[in-house]
Design a protein around this nucleic acid. Structure first.
Length: 420
RNA sequence: GUGGCAGUAGUUCAAUGGUAGAGCCCUGGACUGUGGCUCCAGUCGUUGCGGGUUCGACUCCCGUCUGCCACCCCA
């Protein structure tokens, strides 16, 4: 038997309701905030991600699905959305059309990680990117969109963490101080942190090893190193959040795994995702467009993991919508009548189904029940002779004979649908 | 990439080293024109795969694949 590759899911109909609820809420909110959809490709030249995320980042160095095309060029299945959107933004000259561009996307991402709870090799994200806006209002706007989406789908048990990691210049001073601090206690560090100290000292701050926790307490704090511009930007973002009743927690240890962030970073975290904690995250990236060869363009964005949000919704029951009408027939001439009636119902916009194999009324009604049909139409010898159709309400069990030519109007009234 | 646990019918799970079973689902019947509830019957297995030990392996051992969970890291 051929099976699917590891860490990849088959989604059957029973898992579509939650997915639609989440992406539907996201699309509604994006519309409310004036964001337009963009559909960048699922694969890019590998260089897009190497340049976007940083060669040293974990994602690029060990988590990408990379392969060569027939001409020997290296392609990669996108591990995240931002880099590809930035590439498309520049390549299509979007900056010549609008001073600020507000874009959103929904689609699959791929990372070659070991699967576990809340972590898959193919997973879905939605996200938004705003280009051409340096004002802290936009940082707030991005955060508040995700906050609204969460609340709309019924996720409210989470904490919003925010931080500022400053611009390139103030971060440089901070990283220097951090490296100095940790070099002094190199013997106390776990072996991962020794590597972090060499390659990316910022990441020392979110080590989860118990032995490393006490060391963080007296470590330099980024907030002390922010320059005037970065500090007032950060203060302003926080004020917007407070003024708009979006509660948050400052976390000076919050650093993100992607190299491109500047100033604001944030995460929506919960304790209900097993080893994972964030279901949405993002931040500002004022230098990325330039690094891609575009003109200097400040930008801010976020991405949310749809499957992770699904886990948070798991205990909430989704009402599965049922069929309007299931047609039960006695075969022969009744089958012909059933088929034509079924066609008429569908033409008129009602959802209708039937089983062409006549297996007895019992079996057919069982199917009607399993498809959660509201009504069953019964067409047998008696009905054929009388030119009528029996309509059975499957909830109450009541049934009524209706003249054939009045059936559509009757059903629409019964189902509470407006007439066309 | 590292570690722990697991893999038996479509599914959820049983089975001292000695005949592979049950619930649910599905199909049919009781009820030849009436669903849900009940009762009855039936279909379904190379016990993940490959080796080894043994008279004999679902059971023990080794390898491998997959799943779950955690680390790393991330949405």
């Amino acid at each position: 038997m051929i099976s699917k590759p590891p860490g990849i899911e088959d989604r059957f109909p029973d898992r579509i309701a939650a997915w639609s609820l989440i992406t539907g809420a996201a699309r509604d909110v994006f519309r409310i905030y004036n964001y337009r959809e963009i559909m960048p490709p699922v694969m890019e030249f590998t260089e897009v991600f190497v340049r976007g995320l940083g060669r040293e980042s974990d994602i690029v160095s060990k988590e990408m699905f990379t392969f060569e095309d027939r001409g020997g060029r290296s392609l990669t299945l996108r591990p995240e959305g931002t880099a590809g959107v930035v590439r498309a933004y520049i390549e299509n000259g979007e900056y010549n059309r609008r001073a600020t561009s507000k874009l959103f996307y929904v689609g699959p991402m791929f990372r070659a990680e070991r699967p576990q709870k809340g972590r898959l090799r193919q997973f879905y994200q939605f996200g938004a990117e705003l280009f051409g806006g340096s004002d802290p209002f936009y940082d707030f706007e991005i955060i508040s969109m995700m906050d609204m989406i969460s609340k709309r789908v019924g996720i409210d048990d989470y904490t919003l963490l925010v931080n500022s990691i400053g611009c390139a210049s103030c971060r440089k001073e901070f990283v220097k101080a951090l490296a100095r601090y940790y070099t002094g206690m190199k013997d106390l560090l776990c072996k991962d942190c020794v590597v972090r100290l060499e390659r990316n000292p910022l990441r020392l701050l979110d080590c989860k090893q118990d032995s490393c926790q006490p060391l963080k307490k007296d470590s330099p704090k980024i907030t002390a190193y922010l320059d005037e511009e970065c500090r007032s930007h950060y203060e302003s973002v926080k004020k917007y959040l407070s003024d708009n009743k979006i509660s948050f927690k400052e976390d000076p240890l919050l650093v993100r795994g992607l190299d491109y962030y500047t100033k604001t970073t944030f995460e929506f975290v919960t304790t209900k995702l097993g080893g994972q904690n964030a279901f949405a995250a993002g931040g500002r990236y004022d230098n990325l467009v330039e690094e891609f060869g575009g003109r200097t363009t400040p930008a801010v964005g976020f991405a949310a993991g749809i499957e992770r949000m699904e886990i948070l919704l798991e205990n909430k029951k989704m009402a599965a919508h049922g069929l309007d009408v299931f047609i039960v027939h006695a075969g022969g001439e009744a089958l012909n009548k059933a088929a034509s009636t079924c066609g008429l119902l569908r033409q008129s916009g009602l959802s209708a189904d039937m089983d062409p194999a006549a297996k007895g009324f019992k079996a057919q009604l069982k199917k009607a029940d399993r498809d959660k049909a509201a009504l069953a139409l019964i067409i047998g010898e008696d009905e054929l002779a009388a030119g009528s159709i029996t309509v059975k309400d499957l909830k109450t069990g009541e049934q009524e004979k209706v003249k054939e030519d009045a059936i559509i109007d009757y059903l629409k009234a019964k189902l509470g649908r407006s007439h066309p």
